[in-house]
Design a protein around this nucleic acid. Sequence first.
DNA 1: GGAGCGCTGGAAAGCGCTTTCCCGCCACGC
DNA 2: GCGTGGCGGGAAAGCGCTTTCCAGCGCTCC
Lengths: 338, 338
Amino acid sequence: MSARQVTLAEVAKQAGVSLATASRVLNGSTRQVSEELSDRVLRTAEQLGYVPNASAQALARNSSSLVGLVVHDITDPYFSCIAAGVTRVAEEAGLVVVLGTTGRRPEREVELLSTLRAHRARAVVLAGSRTTDRSAQSRLAAEIDAFTEQGGRVACVSQAKLGTDTVVPGNRAGGRALARALTELGHKKFAVLGGPSDLFVARDRLAGFKAGLADAGIAPPVVINGAFTRDGGYEAALELLASKTRATCVFAVTDVMAMGAMAALRERGVRVPEDMSIAGFDDIPTLRDTVPALSTVRLPLEEMGEIAAGLVLDAGGDEPRTVRVAGEVVLRASTAHN
Amino acid sequence: MSARQVTLAEVAKQAGVSLATASRVLNGSTRQVSEELSDRVLRTAEQLGYVPNASAQALARNSSSLVGLVVHDITDPYFSCIAAGVTRVAEEAGLVVVLGTTGRRPEREVELLSTLRAHRARAVVLAGSRTTDRSAQSRLAAEIDAFTEQGGRVACVSQAKLGTDTVVPGNRAGGRALARALTELGHKKFAVLGGPSDLFVARDRLAGFKAGLADAGIAPPVVINGAFTRDGGYEAALELLASKTRATCVFAVTDVMAMGAMAALRERGVRVPEDMSIAGFDDIPTLRDTVPALSTVRLPLEEMGEIAAGLVLDAGGDEPRTVRVAGEVVLRASTAHN
DNA sequence: GGAGCGCTGGAAAGCGCTTTCCCGCCACGC
DNA sequence: GCGTGGCGGGAAAGCGCTTTCCAGCGCTCC
């Protein structure tokens, strides 16, 4: 194995031109090369099966064709949708996506960023949501600085106070609109399965929801925090039931949590929506066919990924840019009139 | 921006040692370095925030720390689960995962492999399923050869006759076992929503299913082919209904297709499982909470990703290895006695 | 008709790192 | 006492590419 690798030098020699000329032909430089030589080089390269060594190019050019993508958990459809958007844009731009997963550990995010820096990634999209953990935040900020210092660009999806380009979904506005829609169905007593309290996304959705209830002059909801996962929703729902709170409508800050919650309700014989209405947030495509269909706030997740990738790939000014993406309330069968 | 990048040379100079020594300290070489110098180098590196330039390392060592992962569609939970397994193992090994998506275009797979080759990726996991398309296969095989020639390793998930390491899920056996389980429920008339006819995964599951029916002395099923997606399942189910076939049980070769099919049935007023039983294949975790709960064949998807990554990362002999992974029939509420 | 210019091609200097090779030093053994 | 290894340190030769700089050439323009 390991047959000698074809190098530019070999192509050049075979084609009877200099290294410089071969390089110019095979990698669109500004310089012109006569058609004759150009043809010869192209043909030889083709024939030898030449593939440029990306590491060498990266080293010589001091910039690679790597784009980082950092998510908490790629099996979470929220992230996989964003990932799809990011990869599409990156691939169109001829770049290659490096996927890192943090497992929701903030320090892992820092590590990944550092690795990406080592690889001289040209840009990074941070899709994991920020937390209120001060020290984690500051270490992350330091890494981000180091990264941008080096000429790399960084964009975040969802809330971030990191001075980077950001795609901000309308978490608060969405939560608020959802609350209003639900009050219009006649509900008066709400509960919220709120995700980890230190997560900005969760906090914003909750805050918006509370504001929406307040708008309608309705009492604040009972809030039960839990993990940002299916199981988190499940546990939180059980806790809600155990607490004997008399809510008629539950808002889970995530579709995935809502799924877990519905499972819990079902197990306990609570019918949705007859006994309890439930709504989520995100409108995960994979979950659209569930029964009862989940009321939620639709976020254009793939598009958000695309936007983030777009931001991070075209240079832009020094000003951090912010793109707001609105959520749209979608009422389906999981919420009923009360 | 773009403050000068800290290089090994600077660290070495600051620490008052040679480049060689600094390199040896900072990248576990076989050579020993005295504790004193070692400490000095480490401290200086730390202090200067030195991060090795991965491209330069890759170039000098002629091997990178990149692992490729090629999937058709990262939003498909089947692939995202596998991706999770692959990334976990790769990250534990200190490697970095490059994610490529093909959008189910075979030529894109070839392109990606070529890109990965350019990056001197040390290994690639091909998770997309193979088709019967001869020419696409042969071009892919050529790229795989080129890749391995260069010292890279390749592993495939699911059926592949490509001479690479492979993780083979028990598609046929699973289909067969499922068929038997369903006949034991008393069903006699089956339909299959079969996915694209040129896809090995689909064919195998179908073939196994047919074999299982034959085992039970039951007539072959009506087969309706469609795309390997939710919408494919939806369309196929509509077609099935339109065909007036009198099946009491439908097998969709994929959970995702089964979801689409259930949606179609529901829309048409066909109750599951009362009027029609339905089963899928894969046991996608995200879909486990659907109602009615989907009967299926469970595949340990994440584990399959882990295994594939494991195969591809530890050198192994020249013999292509094959790891078989069994599917386990899980009957739930979507299939009823007949 | 010669100075100046634009254009193409090639030589060569890096890019930041690894690794070979060599050198000096210090036991150690006879 | 002196050859012999072994060992830690450094100089320097690459790894495969890009890009600067220069040389040569055919023009145009006074």
